[in-house]
Design a protein around this nucleic acid. Structure first.
Lengths: 213, 213
DNA sequence: CCATGAAATGAGAGTAGCTCTCAAAATCTA
DNA sequence: TAGATTTTGAGAGCTACTCTCATTTCATGG
């Protein structure tokens, strides 16, 4: 969620030899396509990169590319955070206040994301800011993140996850956090993301702080 | 903003005879294209409707359609609310508390939107919920609505509109209100939208209310 | 009222994302 | 090793969208 870099299935293909050859090959192909795309986008930019080129460099057919990814944007934008966050939220003690849980989980997710290749991370968030189609797809995923979050809130607080209140609450969190990652990307990833998220959650919890200047 | 139905340039072409013939024709063409699209979408659904069909029914060439609207989604989704809301916000007394202003302005916007053709309104919000491409485009416009809103907040509170805090605050409002209109559409537009917006703003201002059951 | 300039339109070609189908190739299972 | 199953490649096809250029339509000053 929030559009930060995702730790997309980082099995090395060599790992997990217990997986059948078929499965291992699939993982390898997925990675090959992604890698090809990242390289081409770095070289030529997003729009100038065609599926055909990606297929060629990944040594697969264009059909195969589409079999692995529904859209071009999805090749750069995979977010496995949602499930991860949901699990982590469930793992928090049930009596912990909700905002505290959320904070913990966000920090944890960031830590996991940081393990990822930082070059790819930055490329991805940059594309999010720069390429409308990518940002758009990202935002599209907000809806599903919102659904996930409201389910979590429902479980946690015993509220109806489909009530307007819970939905609005969840979506305002998602919106705020997404803005945070765009901010982070626009600042060239220079500030500490953890600190930004804390400030963002403060605003969401308590509204705008009194002016300081 | 918030994805509710927009009062898209509702001049009847006959109006404003002081406009040159050229201008009047342009307005007429715009309306013709929109009307054609609405009709076709109602008959066949969004995806089944092609630009060529729209052009044919509107009695213009496909090129012309693209000259008037950058994308197919934009034919159904025009949002002139942003500017309107910005103006209204500026018109509120400077010493009025921000949340109060926001509430007033939202209600006013809804009232204006209600003047629009309700059939078209409903069609539009339905498409927003049902057609991914439309929803996606809608969400894309959230970014610009967010920018507008943070500028307004900046003017109003003297804060830096580009600070993380203001940005997050603005975006959480936008996210919450967008969720509200999706909720409204999903409920078949049956609840009173004003009431929903009030509940949503309550949540955004004060967080989730204590449980009631 | 007409001639000249400017703007809007139409026709058409072209690109690329995405879908679908079907046959060939690769992997799994017995 | 044979047969069943899955994955892949090739290719045709659709449509959104872009660009170019000739033609038509409107505006305006004489």
């Amino acid at each position: 969620m929030t559009g930060m870099t995702a730790p997309h299935t980082s099995f090395s293909p060599a790992d997990n030899p217990r997986l059948g050859l078929r499965e291992r090959k699939k993982i390898k192909t997925r990675e090959a396509i992604r890698t090809a795309m990242y390289a081409l986008v770095t070289e030529q930019g997003y729009d100038a990169t065609t599926i055909e080129q990606i297929a060629e460099r990944a040594e697969v057919s264009p059909s195969t590319v589409y079999r692995y990814f529904p859209t071009k944007e999805d090749i750069v934008l995979t977010d496995e955070y949602d499930l991860l966050i949901l699990e982590e939220l469930r793992a928090r003690p049930a009596d912990e206040p909700w905002p505290v849980s959320l904070r913990h989980v966000m920090h944890r997710a960031i830590r996991l994301g940081a393990k990822d290749d930082p070059v790819v991370s930055r490329l991805r968030t940059r594309l999010m800011v720069e390429v409308p189609a990518v940002r758009s797809r990202m935002m599209e995923s907000m809806s599903s993140t919102g659904r996930m979050l409201r389910r979590a809130i429902g479980e946690r607080t015993g509220r109806d996850p489909d009530s307007l209140e819970v939905r609005v609450y969840a979506m305002s969190i998602v919106g705020g956090l997404m803005e945070t990652s765009m901010y982070w990307a626009e600042q060239e990833h220079e500030p500490d993301f953890n600190a930004l998220v804390d400030r963002a959650l403060n605003v969401i919890e308590h509204g705008l702080p009194p002016e300081n200047h």
